[in-house]
Design a protein around this nucleic acid. Structure first.
Lengths: 214, 214
DNA sequence: TTAGTTCTAGTCAATTTGACTATAACTAAT
DNA sequence: ATTAGTTATAGTCAAATTGACTAGAACTAA
């Protein structure tokens, strides 16, 4: 499953979006579902996740991590299925390149209808984990591009945690993390004082055994 | 994989131990390995983990949680194997009931030799996760019995985190967590002032979707 | 009765956090 | 050109938390 930031239709502020694919066969024909597919004997788990992602949506995530293995007996009405779910974060520029079609669409993460299988529960769990990781580690930067302003980082936190944060205190907090590097560039073209651009110098992610954050 | 506290041979202080089983067939015949086995079509993932645990060691854990799904292509030299690993914590009284034999033995977690498959890496990851969970959540209590003293809790933390903690400050920290309940019992029979007994009132664990701690 | 040890409650300074104020730097309207 | 409006940024201050430490309470063993 994939998270990306997209501007909300109304406020224009960034919100979390998820691409889903429509089921074209039973069970749950016609309902929306998470992209996925079988694991071949010759590919690793993250490779299979990346391949499925590419084949269905054309996306190339900047962050990929194992979420959880779901193996309940009645996840599918027709057969026993064990799904090892990965979750990915994609940057806005990449997300814009995604193939959208009749059967592949983006949805706001907080406004999903009833999905196929247990996919609502899986997304709930992923959202919980995303919020948790945000509170501690430095995962938010994988939702942003290479350069960003501190206000943009704050908007990401506000979108995911769903509450407002004090700009001054948030700035102090971010500036205290060593992985954030100040550049001498400024974002021009805004309506007000141009903010300084920063960049994230942490590791790229894309690794299941990624042990830097709880 | 299972963690339990056992007194160290020398100091007698509690340390982390892990039960392993000896491989009786190829590959890795003769080496020690984590207990495990196949998943049947009619049991859930945690059920399968509990059954395997019971069959090989006779243990009934007080805490069970999914660790990670390992699916590298060359984990076994003979075939492609995907292992969905669970980890368990057992209380000392339960651990003492474990079946030990020629082919099932307890080992100190920090003194393991070379194990079969990628099991050393799996244990390293589990240890990392255990330390991480200890630092935040209230997982340590599943390694203890129903009643415990604050010094015992501290010893668990010291054993797992491998550093000494100030008794007074640790006490203040533990007493501030609402899940710890003070009883009006005292542990008698010690050599010094009898410490008060406490109990843990949090949820029992034993659930894969256990979302209370990061 | 005394020495030794742990249990327990507390102090105090250093650090972190949350709420807030003030100035800087830009755009858009007058 | 000036002013109003808005965001960016730096800083203050009190409250809360943390780490290092002191001291009395309560028991056992000599």
């Amino acid at each position: 499953m994939i998270f990306a930031l997209r501007p909300s239709e109304r406020s224009g502020r960034p919100t979390l979006w998820i691409p889903l694919v429509r089921r074209i066969r039973e069970p749950f024909k016609g309902l929306w579902a998470l992209p996925g597919g079988p694991l071949s004997h010759t590919e690793s788990l993250p490779d299979a996740a990346l391949r499925n992602l590419r084949e269905t949506t054309g996306l190339a995530p900047s962050y990929l991590e194992q979420l959880y293995a779901f193996g309940g007996l009645h996840r599918s009405p027709t057969q026993r299925v064990v799904s090892i779910v990965y979750w990915a974060l994609v940057q806005p520029t990449e997300a814009a390149l995604a193939d959208e079609s009749e059967n592949v669409k983006w949805f706001r993460a907080d406004r999903l209808g009833e999905l196929a299988f247990d996919h609502n529960a899986i997304i709930d769990y992923a959202l919980w984990r995303l919020r948790n990781k945000m509170a501690y580690g430095s995962i938010a930067y994988h939702l942003l591009g290479e350069y960003f302003t501190l206000a943009q980082v704050r908007e990401v936190y506000e979108a995911v945690l769903d509450r407002e944060l004090d700009p001054a205190n948030f700035r102090r907090h971010v500036k205290a993390t060593p992985e954030i590097e100040e550049t001498d560039q400024y974002l021009q073209g805004g309506k007000h004082r141009p903010p300084r651009l920063y960049r994230f110098t942490g590791r790229p992610g894309l690794d299941p055994d990624n042990r830097s954050t709880p």
